[in-house]
Design a protein around this nucleic acid. Structure first.
Lengths: 214, 214
DNA sequence: ATTATAAGTGAGTAATCACTCACTAAGAAA
DNA sequence: TTTCTTAGTGAGTGATTACTCACTTATAAT
């Protein structure tokens, strides 16, 4: 756990000492990967959009795939970092009176993250099916670390009588399904007249009722 | 509506008069698109796996993208056909006493479809982000036809007092999110010791409770 | 049997691909 | 200044790309 935290901190901070051209490359690549996909984006296009020579890309990234991983891997960690970092981000470690309060805090927190990282998250989701390393990384982190932490939380509220006696894995699945559906609607479908507060209230009420005992 | 049904029937039956080589091409392309993605699959690979000359592919499909659409478009329609075809598939037109019975029938029905079309559905989902035509097609069908039909169903059960007074769009979003999460878990994560009956029961109970009035 | 239409072939093509390398520019260390 | 390291360049490379076309084979209509 100590080691993991160290590695994560490194990854999360590793964008400080970059050249301007390097940052341009990452930005251009992210934008095009999100738009056309990794396989359909050529390194010459990236170089052109970043305003650098094509050789410059390969000075910093051994291969095109290496460039993808440099973009995607840190973001994958940051997506789930609140669930596995105990010290840095305290959001999910406070004890909330009700499960609904915990849910609301989690949604707000991850929504803020999404607002700032929409494109990269899009790349992560789009590319995971095509790159086994990414899939394995994701399964390993979410399937082990996140599941472990979340299970404890669920059991806590089950002991308080707020959640029915359902396997924590099922609770996790339903909660994340509904929240992902909410985010997908907000960011992809983007309906007109979207009342965020109201939607979140309804979402939480739905989850709380669905998971309540009896 | 009449016209749509006609067009759909055409599309759905349009695989009967194909040559063996043509079927080989479709099968090979589907398999590789599902595995590596459309952009990362070359026509020479497809030809090789299908056991045909590369020219044969272009005899039947003007472009590589045309091949993709020939695979994906009919499947997209078949994914949602039970929701918009009134006569052929009667599953969702029968009146079920309880909303839960309707849900159970719908899940069983679409699960059977998934079992027989896993790969193509995978291609649909994976490629939609990269092809605006596909996205538009999907949004048009799901966002209009499916939403319309589903709204009627929801309002029916709302009148019976089984569903709370929530906007039908929200009901549709939550129901499909949870069901998609269920399918994703079953087909992607594929946990060991997966008790299908029990999972479906819990899923339906969760949805019914979450959507119930009060 | 003849003709017509569609199915299938595979060598060929221009364009593009990811990547290399010899080189220059710049900044810091000595 | 000199030296060393890193950043940046862009022409060049062989391989691969989607697609074409002149051609042969097969099926079916006359």
């Amino acid at each position: 756990m100590e080691k993991l935290d160290k590695r994560m901190e490194e990854l999360l901070q590793s964008e400080g000492d970059l050249t301007e051209k390097q940052r341009n490359i990452l930005a251009a690549a992210t934008e095009m990967f999100a738009q056309k996909g990794f396989a359909a984006t050529s390194t010459s296009e990236i170089a052109k959009k970043a305003g650098v020579a094509e050789g410059t890309i390969f000075r910093h990234y051994k291969t095109k795939k290496d460039l993808l991983l440099s973009i995607v891997s840190p973001t994958m960690l940051r997506m789930i970092s609140p669930f596995i970092l105990k010290d840095i981000n305290k959001v999910l470690n406070q004890d909330y009176e009700r499960f609904e309060d915990f849910l609301r805090e989690m949604i707000k927190n991850r929504q803020a993250f999404l607002d700032n990282n929409l494109q990269v998250v899009k790349v992560v989701i789009q590319e995971i099916p095509f790159h086994p390393e990414l899939r394995d990384q994701f399964i390993q982190h979410v399937g082990q670390k996140v599941y472990q932490r979340f299970s404890e939380t669920v059991q806590y509220y089950q002991a308080k009588g707020q959640i029915a006696d359902i396997p924590p894995a099922t609770v996790l699945r339903n909660v994340s399904s509904v929240i992902l559906g909410y985010f997908a609607t907000k960011y992809i479908v983007a309906p007109v007249g979207w009342d965020e507060e109201k939607e979140i209230d309804e979402l939480i009420a739905f989850l709380a009722k669905g998971l309540a005992p009896e």
